[in-house]
Each structure stands twice: as C-alpha cells, then as structure tokens.
Design a protein around this nucleic acid. Structure first.
Lengths: 213, 213
DNA sequence: GTCGCTCGCATTGTTGACAATCCAGGCGAC
DNA sequence: GTCGCCTGGATTGTCAACAATGCGAGCGAC
C-alpha cells in the first residue's frame, strides 16, 4: 500500500467518523493494520495534517482532530462566499440542458420521502450531486480544489446539522430554489440563494452547538 | 537547519523570485548549500508542493512552479470574494480608532510620491499593512490562513501588476475609498469596494498577459 | 542523417536501524 | 501524604546506505 493509498484510506475513515476525535493514531499500529510500512503511514499523516484532519504533536503522536465550533463558524463564513461564487459561475457557464439531471433528482417525490423518513445517506448523496454538478459547470479548477479542502473539515458536522429536526426539509426547499435560479441562468440570484442556504446551515450549527452545551 | 526553517527559507526565496520558474531544485544540492540533510530539504519540498509553490515530478525532481495565467485568473476570482469577506468583517468588528494608523499611512503625500516615482517596495509595504490590519480586525483565524495560502500563489504576479503603468495610482485611489468605508463601519460598501479593487487587479493581470503574448 | 538501442549518470524513493523525546508509574525523602 | 526524581516503555524523528527510476549521450545499423 503506497503512501497516497494510505492517505485516501485514512481520509475516508476520518470523514466517515470511524475514529473518535482525540483518539491516537500510532504509526506502527496503522502500518501493521494496513500491511504497509511506517514511512507510508507517516507521510500520509503528514499530508492529513496539512488538511487539518489530524493533529500531530512532536515526539508524542498523531491524534484525530477535534471539532472546534468557533473555527467551524469561521469555516462556514468562508464556505458561504465560495459556494456562492461557485453557484454564480455555474449559472453563467451552464446551459439549460446541463441541469436536467439535477432537476429530475430534486423533483418532488423521492427526496421528500428521504427528508420525511430521516434517510440521511440518500439526502447527502443528493446534495453531493448538486455540489459536483455546480463545481463541474463552474469550470474552475482552483475553486474546486479550494472548496474540496475546506469541505473536508466541515464534513463531520454536516451530517449532524442535517440530522437536526426540520433541516432536511428546509435544505431541500432551499436547493430547489437555487436550482431554479441556476436553470434560468440567473447568476446573481443563484449566488444570493446559495449564500442564504449556507447562512441557515450556519444558524443550525450554532443551535446544535448551544444544544450541546 | 530543521525542516521548517528550510521550508521558510525556500518559501522566502521563491516568493522573492530568486529562482526562475521551471528551474530545478535538487535535494542534494540544496542540502549542501544550506548545510543540512537531504531529509530536511525533502520534507520542506513536500510541504512547498502542497502550497503549489513547487512541482514535484516522481523520480525526476522538483521544479519551481511556473505561472499559469488561466489558473491565476481563477485565483483572483476566489481572492475577490475572500478579500471582500475580510473587508466586510473588519468593518463590522473594528472601532474607528483601530484605523487611525492606516489612515495616516494612506494620507495624501508619501504614497503619492511612491506611486509617481515607481517605488514598488514602499507601495507593496503599504498594501501589506492594509492587509495585515484588515485581517487582524476581521479576527478570523481560518480566513487568515486560507488567504495566506492563496496569496502566496499570486504573490509573484502581484508585483508585475503593480508595475503596469498607472496601476499604483489606481490602486491607491481604490484603497483610499476602501479605508474610508472601513472607518465609517460601512461593511457592505467596504466589501463592495474591495471586490471592485480585486476586479481591476484582475483586469490588469489580463492586460499584462495579453501584452506578453 | 535518423532511427532505435543500450548504457551510465543524476535524481528521487525506500528501507531498517538507531537516536531523541515524552509520559506515566513507582520509589524514596521529608 | 506529597513532592520530586528517576527509570522504562512507547512513540516519533533522523540518518545513511541502497534500490528504483528516468533521462540523455553515445553508438551503430540502415
């Protein structure tokens, strides 16, 4: 197993929440588990550190990054303008027929059921499809890379936010509005609506946080 | 010399433009020059690769990243919304007295002379002071980190843009407007003006690019 | 002349052993 | 009992030698 594979594997598990935040990730143990060398694990952990998914303490070890709510609110501020930018660019670059698949996916029916029954995975997959479509049509590699790096850090909390009562319905309605603006090619409106969507997500985050305290 | 020192040292020289883009950076040679080991240089280069300041080709070597104008235009799109966000937050969080130093620095006189005589270093230092002040008052660590990473990649071209005829005068006028809005605490206007400033910079970039071809 | 082959050099990649560091637990002085 | 010291184990950090890789020079066939 090469270093990049190890990184991908660990990233996958970290994003899925397989490791509890704060738990340790010893290089030798991971190397044994994955049937690879300590060096491969080591450089993978170094890469994951720069993505802020783990924290490395010199001469002590690597631990899974803890969620820092203050930092997460800041992340959502940044995400708001960047996802808004992506929506604007996608509205400018996309043709109406580019959106048909997304329109069908968000048409009344299946996602309403998912929202009603709390089917998180189906809902998440739909949002991911929205994101992929928008970022592809925005056609800006740098923005895509930047967003990907940031979204990783917010991923764990994204699930929690969606699980708060009523959030899926709210998000669904917001995304339908956004998609409608995107199809019309109304770039300004699409950006505005996406930013609104991120703002409501941020509010949910804050509510969830207060709930925890 | 530790790995982080090597990274800082190389980053400094890369941003200053000491290495011509595309030139090679052999690990052994650098290690000898800096009086350190190959490993230190190696991990420094790995870190610089993730910042996109150098490019590493497997089994061949490390080369100084070339300027990719398409990518730079994308970077400016992202910078536009992020610097705009920073200006908005700074306007919200800052008190009038927080801005006095910046106001004095940008008062008529010294910077006009610098712009007229083409004194790039003085002008750059003033812009950096603007940035530092805004990012400090915005008081968002995550935004600061994100911006720092991105600005590194645009740093080399920033000088070239400022050297285009009339750009310093233009930029100076724009920054005076921005600062005026910041002092007033007019967050919306400050964001708008900063975004406008980035747009004109982007236009200069495009003109400079066309000039090269 | 040019195409293709081979060989050697320069460079990066990997490995395993060893050094440095930190932390926890125990032990003794008081 | 508690404070301070010390030692053992676990973990990361560093190093030097060796392996793998890619590139270009040189050579020969045609």
């Amino acid at each position: 197993m090469k270093s990049e594979e190890v990184e991908l594997h660990l990233r996958e598990r970290l994003l899925r929440g397989d490791f509890t935040p704060g738990s340790r990730l010893p290089e030798v143990k991971l190397a044994a588990e994955l049937g690879t060398t300590r060096n491969a694990v080591r450089s993978a952990l170094l890469a994951l550190e720069s993505r802020k998914l783990v924290e490395r303490i010199p001469n002590v070890g690597t631990v899974v990054a803890k969620v820092d709510f203050d930092r997460l609110e800041e992340i959502y501020d940044v995400l708001e303008v960047l996802e808004g930018l992506a929506a604007r660019l996608a509205a400018q670059h996309g043709e109406p027929r580019d959106w048909t698949a997304l329109q069908e996916l968000f048409a009344p029916g299946r996602l309403d059921d998912a929202a009603a029954s709390g089917d998180l995975e189906t809902f998440l997959a739909a949002i991911d499809t929205y994101r992929d479509t928008v970022i592809r049509l925005a056609d800006q590699d740098f923005l895509a890379e930047t967003l990907a790096g940031i979204q990783d850090q917010a991923h764990l909390l994204r699930r929690r936010i969606l699980m708060t009562p009523g959030r899926m319905e709210e998000s669904l309605a917001e995304h339908r509005d956004i998609i409608e603006a995107l199809v019309r090619g109304d770039a300004g409106r699409a950006e505005e609506l996406k930013r609104h969507n991120m703002k409501t997500a941020r509010k949910r985050l804050r509510r969830y946080r207060d709930f925890l305290v």
